[in-house]
C-alpha cells in the first residue's frame, strides 16, 4: 500500500489505454502522458471472436 502511495509524491508519467480524452486532459495539465493504441480482441465483438476461433480450428 505504501508503495502505491509513493506514486502520488512523484511526477506522474501516464500511459493511457482507452478513451483518448483522458490522455489529452492530462497533457493540458502539463502531465507527461502518452496514448497507447489498443483495442480489445475482435473489437470486443464476441461473435467475431467465436467465428475466428472456429475458423482457425
Amino acid at each position: 500500500m505504501k508503495r502505491v502511495n509513493d506514486i502520488f509524491g512523484k511526477d506522474l508519467k501516464v500511459l493511457n489505454i482507452g478513451l483518448e480524452q483522458f490522455c489529452a486532459d492530462l497533457k493540458e495539465q502539463d502531465v507527461t502522458a502518452i496514448q497507447m493504441d489498443w483495442r480489445p480482441p475482435s473489437g470486443g465483438d464476441k461473435e467475431a471472436a467465436d467465428l475466428l476461433s472456429a475458423l482457425l480450428g
Binding site: 483495442r39 480482441p41 475482435s42 465483438d45 467475431a48 475466428l52
Partner: peptide, 10 residues
C-alpha cells in the same frame, strides 16, 4: 485477410 478483420474488429 478476413482473419485479421475478425481478430482486430477493424
Amino acid at each position: 485477410d478476413i482473419v485479421k478483420v475478425l481478430e482486430t474488429g477493424i
